[in-house]
C-alpha cells in the first residue's frame, strides 16, 4: 500500500509537469491550429531563466515569476516572428518550429554555457513528511498543488470570463468569432503567450524536481506533451489534465514494476487511443 501511494504521488507530480507543458500546446493547437514544435524550447528556457533568477535573487518565487515573464516575452517573439507567417500551413509550421526549437536550444548554450546546471529545491520545500511507511516528498506535493491550481484558474477563465468564452468559441469557429467583431489574431497572440508562460512554468518547476537542467531537456518533454495532447484530445484543456495524469501514473508504475516498458508505455497508450478514439479521449471544448 505504501509503495502504491509513493508511486502515485510520484506519477501525479510528473503528470502535473507534463500537464503544464501540454495544456499550452493543446490550447495553441485547438485555437490556432498551430503545430508548435518549439514549445519544448520555451520549457527549457523557463527552466534556465528560472534557475538563473532563483540563483541571483535567492528567492524561488522570484525564479518562478522570472521564468513566467521569460515565457511570455519569448511567446510574443515566437508568435510574431515565427508563427504569424505560417498560419494555415502545417508543413511549414513543423519545419519552422522544429528549426526554431534548435535555435532556442543552442541559444541556451550560448547564454548559460554547454554544461548541465544544478537546480536545488528551496529549503522550505525540501525534505519529506513521513506517515508510517508512507513518504511524501514535499516538493512533489507542491508540484501537484500548483498543477491543480493552474488547472482551476484556467478552467475558471475559460468557463466564466468573456475572454475564455471567446477562446472556446474560437476553437470551434474562428471565422464566426471574427464576424462578431472580435480580433482573433490578438486572441491568438494572448493564447500563445499564455501557453508559452505555462511551458516556462513547467520548466522552472521541473528544474529542482530533476536536480539538473540541460539544453536538450525541451526535446524530451515536448514529446511527452505531444503524446498527452493526442491522448487527451487536441484543444481540450481537461483532456490534457486527464491524459497527463494517465501518462505520469503509467510511467511511474511501469518504471517500478516493468522497467523495460517504462518508456514504451506512453507510446502504447497513444497507439491504443489512436486506434479506438482517434480524436482523443476528450473533445475540444477549450
Amino acid at each position: 500500500m505504501e509503495l502504491l501511494i509513493n508511486l502515485t504521488v510520484n506519477g501525479l507530480a510528473t503528470g502535473m509537469l507534463i500537464f503544464l507543458l501540454a495544456s499550452g500546446l493543446t490550447l495553441i493547437f485547438g485555437l490556432m491550429s498551430v503545430l508548435n514544435f518549439a514549445h519544448g524550447g520555451l520549457f527549457a528556457w523557463g527552466a534556465y531563466s528560472g534557475v538563473w533568477f532563483y540563483t541571483l535573487s535567492g528567492s524561488f518565487v522570484i525564479g518562478i515569476i522570472g521564468a513566467i515573464i521569460t515565457g511570455i516575452i519569448l511567446g510574443f517573439i515566437t508568435e510574431k516572428l515565427i508563427i504569424t507567417p505560417v498560419y494555415g500551413n502545417h508543413v511549414q509550421q513543423i519545419l519552422i518550429t522544429l528549426g526554431f526549437m534548435l535555435v532556442l536550444t543552442e541559444l541556451l548554450k550560448v547564454v548559460w554555457g554547454p554544461n548541465q546546471m544544478a537546480a536545488k529545491v528551496p529549503s522550505y520545500l525540501a525534505g519529506s513528511w513521513e506517515f508510517g511507511d508512507v513518504l511524501i516528498i514535499k516538493y512533489r506535493l507542491f508540484i501537484i498543488i500548483v498543477g491543480f491550481l493552474v488547472f482551476g484558474v484556467f478552467q475558471y477563465m475559460l468557463q466564466k470570463t468573456k475572454i475564455g468564452l471567446i477562446v472556446r468559441a474560437g476553437v470551434m469557429d474562428k471565422d464566426m468569432v471574427q464576424a462578431l467583431g472580435i480580433n482573433i489574431k490578438r486572441v491568438f497572440l494572448y493564447v500563445f503567450m499564455a501557453g508559452s508562460a505555462l511551458a516556462a512554468l513547467s520548466g522552472v518547476l521541473m528544474a529542482p524536481y530533476s536536480g539538473v537542467i540541460y539544453a536538450e531537456m525541451g526535446f524530451e518533454f515536448a514529446i511527452l506533451a505531444f503524446i498527452v495532447v493526442v491522448i487527451g484530445g487536441m484543444g481540450s484543456f481537461p483532456g490534457s489534465l486527464f491524459a497527463a495524469i494517465l501518462v505520469g501514473l503509467a510511467g511511474s508504475y511501469m518504471a517500478y514494476y516493468v522497467p523495460a516498458l517504462s518508456l514504451a508505455v506512453n507510446m502504447m497508450l497513444m497507439a491504443i487511443v489512436l486506434i479506438f478514439r482517434p480524436q482523443g479521449l476528450f473533445t475540444a471544448k477549450g
Partner: peptide, 24 residues
Amino acid sequence: KATYTIANGGIGYVPEDQGIFADL
C-alpha cells in the same frame, strides 16, 4: 478591411450554416 473591423463598423452577419458555437 479585416473582418472584425467590418463587423465593428456596423455589419451583422448570419452565415448559411448559422455559425453557432455548439459547445457554448
